[in-house]
């Protein structure tokens, strides 16, 4: 088994000697206080970094705007920028009647963007790189959107799967494809976010492992720098993509007709 060889490898080379890759160790959940097992209510590094995300959101959106200036200072203009960015996205993609759900989408965006960027700090724990986290987010969106669709349109919501513009013979096939793609949505929605974050962080860690070899360490450091730049981009783009896809799904629920 790979795990056994992995363990044996680590034991054989020892820490710091030779090439030892533990790219996944940064994702380990562990209790902040003591060494006990991780229960549901245990305060862990997950708790710490989620709490930091909340604090950052409060710092930017509440403390940053506390001056209520007509002419904004730096923090306030960033907060207004985030507000306008998400508001415009919801309005453009989901339509005027989607603006009602703007606070929920803003919550998702602010959380993901701060969790992603906090994860880029050295020694940080990236909460959004865990499927447990992103699946909850994606399932919340999926269930909310589906329930909303049925509440708004009743059985007519199923017209989403019935492509009325296609030839009649093709429609059942298309309906099957549409249903499958509908149920794949939360899967791709969650794996995209967690996968991107995990991939970037793991790759940086692998490059960091190469830095132990003196000959390639300059290249390795350069590669880490480049990857870090890319990861900053990815951290924002994935938050943006998650949010805009949520808006697209919301639009489907509000206007199911093709």
């Amino acid at each position: 088994m790979a795990t056994e060889t992995h363990g044996a490898e680590a034991a054989g080379h020892g820490e710091g000697g030779g090439l030892v890759f533990h790219p996944m160790d940064q994702f380990i959940v562990k209790p902040l206080f003591g060494d006990g097992a991780v229960g549901i209510f245990t305060v862990t590094n997950v708790t710490l970094w989620l709490a930091l995300a909340v604090l950052c959101v409060i710092a930017l959106m509440v403390l940053g705007t506390s001056r209520r200036g007509i002419v904004p200072n730096r923090m306030q203009s960033v907060a207004e920028l985030a507000y306008g960015f998400v508001y415009k996205m919801v309005e453009d993609v989901a339509g005027k009647d989607g603006v009602k759900y703007f606070p929920y989408i803003m919550t998702l965006f602010m959380f993901i963007v701060f969790a992603n960027f906090l994860g880029l700090l050295p020694m940080a724990f990236t909460t959004t790189s865990h499927f447990a986290v992103t699946v909850v987010l994606a399932l919340a969106v999926f269930i909310a959107v589906t329930v909303l669709g049925f509440l708004k349109h009743g059985a007519k919501f199923l017209e989403l799967f019935w492509v009325s513009s296609a030839p009649l013979a093709l429609r059942p096939v298309l309906a099957l494809i549409e249903v499958i793609s509908y149920f794949v949505r939360p899967v791709s929605h969650s794996i995209r976010l967690a996968g991107n974050l995990m991939a970037g962080h793991a790759v940086i860690k692998v490059f960091a492992g190469f830095a132990a070899i003196a000959a390639v360490s300059p290249i390795s450091v350069l590669a880490i720098t480049a990857m870090y730049g890319l990861e900053i981009l990815v951290a924002f783009i994935q938050a943006y993509v998650f949010t805009i896809l949520t808006c697209v799904y919301l639009k489907d629920a509000l206007h199911p007709h093709h």
Binding site: D92, S188, I191, R192, G195, I237, I244, L245
Partner: peptide, 20 residues
């Protein structure tokens, strides 16, 4: 640009799946 990012996200997601 929104469509661009959605398209990139879909294309990239499949690469991420293979990485996974």
């Amino acid at each position: 640009t929104a469509t661009l990012f959605i398209g990139i996200a879909f294309a990239e997601a499949l690469g991420i799946f293979s990485f996974l």
